[in-house]
Computed example of a mutant assay.
Amino acid sequence: MKVVQLLLAVVVIKQCFGQYYLNITLFDILKSAQQIATGLAESQGNQLTADYYFRYTTNAVLGFPTVWTITAVNAICSAVLSEDAIHPSPEDIPDVEDISIQLRTPCNVRSYPIKELIRIVDDPDFNITKKVVIASSGWLTNANTSDNMLQGIGKAYHCRGDTNFLGIDVGGYIQTLYTWSSLNTQRIGELLAIALVDFVEVVPLENIHLMGHSLGAQIVGETGRHFSRLTGKKIPRITGFDPAGPCFNYGERLTTLSDSDAAFVDIIHSDPGIAGQSEPTADADFFVGGRFPIQNGCTDATCSHQRSWQYYMESVYPGNEYDFLAIRCTSLLRLEQGRCVGAEYPMGIATPTNLQGLFILRVNPIEPFGMNATLNYTSPLSPCGACIFPNLN
């Protein structure tokens, strides 16, 4: 009966919001903007900064209506999952035979079955003395498409030259209905954890760094949890790029990436409350531009959601490690008012692994996104890390 009621609620929400957007007019938008501005001024008085005022009103118009919708969807999804009402067909459940790990070099991508991950150490392009990054992309993505997270961050690490960069190819298991894709993160994470048990017998555990975007962040979170269950040890570091928010709630059937999943967990939040989770759950949580869902330079949630891994990618390039400096703070307004004091810490590749707390920072609307970029800045558009074929003429 509860499931029926929830499904009816979905229809009602869809109808209500659909009718809302159909009937909205420019007058309504202007009236809402005026009400927002008046309320904000009354609540904060003369303490408001111009930048914060602009960010608040922009997000109110572009992001907050979507936040309301996502909040309702998340509540419904969690309730449905708790009722155990979704039963995917066998072909929708991740099969170990369909999942592989890619060793990505500037010019080649070689795949190994996940259950034979240990074979990668014999690949001539794998250096057992170097660090190992294993990354997973997010919902509706594919490891083999161009211009994706794995390609972008992989190129950055290739530019550094000190890391073996591996990508998780999950086939189509997170390209299906979002709720089923969310459920699949558990099984995929477990399969990777099982593979890592043998892998770390050869590769030092302290060299492993897992990272993922959106649903990929939830995959590596489950990997860390299951690896601990299997071995009693913790993955040294897991980095989440705007972990998927809808359907993932701490302590529920699908629990979100949190500080207990690795020795150190850091999260870059760029679209909180819409595509990404809204609450801090890591050892170090970086809320870029405060806890607003729309990033500086973006006009929608999709752009903002992608920015999380793009910020990290920028930090990986040599000379950019300290371009994103954040301060321990609870809101953008407090930061703008100068009420947050203390040391600044880098967000990205150079984040100290003993860091604790919630951090706020601002970014530029265009590259370089890091506001502390120097003359030593390396652009992700540079040829560094790309495949350069020799001149055959």
Rank of each mutant, 00 (worst) to 15 (best):
R307L: 14
S260R: 02
L332E: 13
G276S: 05
S315V: 02
G319I: 15
F292A: 06
C303I: 10
E344N: 06
D271W: 04
Q306F: 14
D285L: 01
N296H: 12
V265C: 09
S304E: 05
D266K: 10
R291T: 07
E321W: 07
S258A: 10
N296A: 13
R307D: 09
S331H: 06
A326D: 03
N296M: 13
E279S: 11
G290L: 09
G297Q: 10
Q310H: 12
S308R: 09
S304A: 13
C340G: 08
Y312M: 08
S270K: 12
Q277S: 14
Q295H: 06
C298K: 05
E336W: 07
E336L: 02
Y322A: 02
Y322N: 03
A326I: 06
D283A: 00
P272I: 08
E279M: 10
S278C: 05
P280G: 01
C298V: 09
Q337W: 10
Q310N: 04
F292T: 08
F264R: 08
A343I: 15
D261L: 05
G290Y: 05
C303D: 04
S278K: 08
I268C: 15
E321A: 11
Y322P: 00
G319K: 15
R339Y: 14
C303A: 04
Y311M: 06
F324C: 06
H269V: 03
S270F: 08
S304H: 06
Q310A: 06
S315H: 03
C298Y: 10
G319F: 13
E344D: 07
A263T: 14
I267L: 01
S308N: 09
G290I: 07
F287G: 00
R307G: 10
A326C: 06
C329G: 04
D259H: 15
F292P: 06
I268V: 15
E314T: 05
S304G: 12
I327M: 09
A301R: 07
S308L: 10
R339C: 11
V288G: 00
E336M: 07
Y311V: 05
G276D: 02
T330F: 11
Q337A: 03
S304R: 05
V288E: 00
Q295F: 14
G342E: 10
A275K: 08
E314N: 04
G338F: 13
D266F: 04
A284Q: 04
I294D: 00
A282N: 03
S304M: 08
D261C: 12
H305S: 14
P272W: 03
V288S: 01
C329R: 10
E344C: 03
Q295E: 14
A343K: 13
G342M: 08
